[in-house]
Design a protein around this nucleic acid. Sequence first.
DNA 1: CGTTGGGTTGATCGACCTCAATAAAAGTGG
DNA 2: CCACTTTTATTGAGGTCGATCAACCCAACG
Lengths: 249, 249
Amino acid sequence: MLDMRKALCRGGEVPASSMGPHHGAECASCPVRSSSICDALTDQEIVSLSAISRHVNFVNKQVIGDEGEPAHSVCNLVTGCVLLSKILPHGDRQVVGIALPGDFLGLALSDRNVFTMTAVGDVQLCQYPRERFGAILDAMPDLLRRLHESTAHELSFAQEHMVLLGRRSATERMAKFLLSLQARWARIRGFSPRIDLLMNRVDIADYLGLTIETVSRTLSKFARDKVLAIIPDGVRILDQQQLETLSGD
Amino acid sequence: MLDMRKALCRGGEVPASSMGPHHGAECASCPVRSSSICDALTDQEIVSLSAISRHVNFVNKQVIGDEGEPAHSVCNLVTGCVLLSKILPHGDRQVVGIALPGDFLGLALSDRNVFTMTAVGDVQLCQYPRERFGAILDAMPDLLRRLHESTAHELSFAQEHMVLLGRRSATERMAKFLLSLQARWARIRGFSPRIDLLMNRVDIADYLGLTIETVSRTLSKFARDKVLAIIPDGVRILDQQQLETLSGD
DNA sequence: CGTTGGGTTGATCGACCTCAATAAAAGTGG
DNA sequence: CCACTTTTATTGAGGTCGATCAACCCAACG
């Protein structure tokens, strides 16, 4: 519901902390290699891909790329969380996706950003110049296949989210959201009843197509019903079973 | 809002009218070749692809494939319209996509249908066995690239639809829907103020996340305001400009 | 004709939004 | 470390848009 684009202090595209280019070597110790598109590559291919890669850092609320603006690079999300959002003429915002470590940003390889990307908390990206990445794709059919897989998976996720936005109640949306985040983090850090939300109520509301008040009320209701406890920066699930019931399937 | 799966007379996967396999030759005269993924192929490649293709026909409301069931084939939509939908445990339905001539069904190449596909009116598909199509992809990197492009485009469209479902009013949804359909048909048949809806109010409601009553009321309102005229099987736009204003951007 | 399926319209209801006040948390500067 | 501001979250009261429930129309069709 809030246009954050103006509210941000964007120094430059690349924060000072990441100006030094450091190539190649890190891939071997990359924490998301196995869960990213890079797992489709041979060691040799990794080397040639890493030759064009650069790590870049962003801080909370920093805009990584603006909808409609030229996209100079594509990247893997290494650490942190990135919100993908679109803003309507009258100012309303819809968060159309949440990227977590291992996710690829720029699946479409489009020359313009199709959505605004905003860092949530500290974010590290492994960035590749777009044209060079495109060129490398020609030489690595497995990489293209993996990219297509990821895109298809995203599409499927998007369709699932359409169902949520079109046909589900506020309670179901909230429950689904929490379970979905929990499941996604589980693949990265392992299962935990404690869920770091990272983002604030505005972001959640804009993702679920609700208002912050409804988000707050729904969470309070869950807490009152002992389904979860609201803790700093997140929630702790107290009754997993009940939350799944509330999610509507 | 209606579970149609049970309500249908599904003879078999392949209607009698299409049992005779007819290979290859039609590709030369295919009406959607240039707008389908096939336009990425050389004449020679077309021949090898057409060797595994088969045309199949479906009638109005016939289920082409059910969500969750094994997907034996992928296909190009040649004529007609296909609804892609998901159904909640509860019974509510969300239409997550509308396929028109030239669109590819089965972009994900997944072994199971991720949504239910339902024919709207008479439908002709150009069908390929899934495994064989997958194998052919290895030999045709351009085809894979084209497939990825289509998938990325679908994803972008899906995200736009999320904005509609999450943040737009009934009026805006309806206006957007009509303009979107008009634009998509324009690429196939050329621009026309007359829009064949093909589908009924239930389908529209389930696509827009509304009820049939709201769809009907909104259309009636548009007609009362002389924005459009409701005609058999569709609408005729009377005030294109005003409809665009109503769409909210 | 009666029946059936789709569409329209009206009356009422309720889930969520809006507006507003308050509370809690997080910065900021002395 | 403590006032002070600013941001973020919660809670309440009231309003609204679209859902629900229900009646009715109309065309197709046996």
